[in-house]
Amino acid sequence: MMRRRSIYMLVAATALSSCEYNVENEGMVIDDSCEPTISYTATIQPLIANNCMPCHNGDGNIPDAPDLTTYAAVQSRAELVKEVTQSRRMPKDGTLTDTEIAAIKCWVDGGALDN
């Protein structure tokens, strides 16, 4: 009798746990769309040049501002560039549009290619 009761409890617990419903995601629209390949040369490099070069130009005038003047420098810090633009900590003047921030994210997520 005790064994049968344990089996029923196990079956009931399994059935209930398989009915999990995640309310947090209800109604959320996740836009995870990226162009197949965001071009570093055509898209990312101009964004860096126009928005980051006042501080990240390698002249040493601003302490702890990494030099972002080359592809290799940007690529080596790609995840950091993505994080600081997504959080809007950079650029300091907040001039990037949502579209530009999304382009940086897509470029980094796509492998930060030199294309």
Rank of each mutant, 00 (worst) to 15 (best):
M53K: 12
P54I: 06
P54A: 07
C55E: 08
C55I: 01
C55K: 06
C55N: 08
C55V: 02
C55Q: 05
H56G: 06
N57F: 02
N57Q: 07
N57I: 04
G58V: 09
G58C: 08
D59F: 02
D59E: 09
G60K: 10
N61V: 13
I62R: 11
I62N: 08
P63Q: 08
P63V: 02
P63H: 03
D64V: 12
D64I: 12
A65N: 05
A65D: 05
A65I: 03
P66D: 11
P66N: 10
D67N: 14
D67K: 04
D67G: 03
L68H: 11
L68V: 05
T69P: 01
T69E: 07
T70Q: 09
T70W: 02
T70A: 10
Y71V: 12
Y71N: 15
Y71T: 12
Y71D: 15
A72C: 01
A72E: 15
A72W: 00
A73F: 12
V74N: 13
V74P: 15
Q75S: 14
Q75C: 06
Q75N: 14
Q75T: 03
S76L: 07
S76V: 04
S76H: 06
R77L: 13
A78T: 01
E79T: 15
E79N: 14
E79P: 06
E79M: 10
L80K: 13
L80E: 11
L80Y: 13
L80M: 14
V81H: 01
V81I: 15
V81S: 04
V81W: 03
K82P: 01
K82F: 00
E83H: 12
E83W: 10
V84T: 11
T85G: 00
T85W: 00
T85M: 00
Q86W: 02
Q86D: 15
S87W: 00
S87V: 05
R88T: 14
R88C: 01
R88P: 01
R88V: 12
R89E: 10
R89P: 01
M90S: 11
M90V: 06
M90Y: 12
P91E: 08
P91S: 06
P91I: 09
P91D: 06
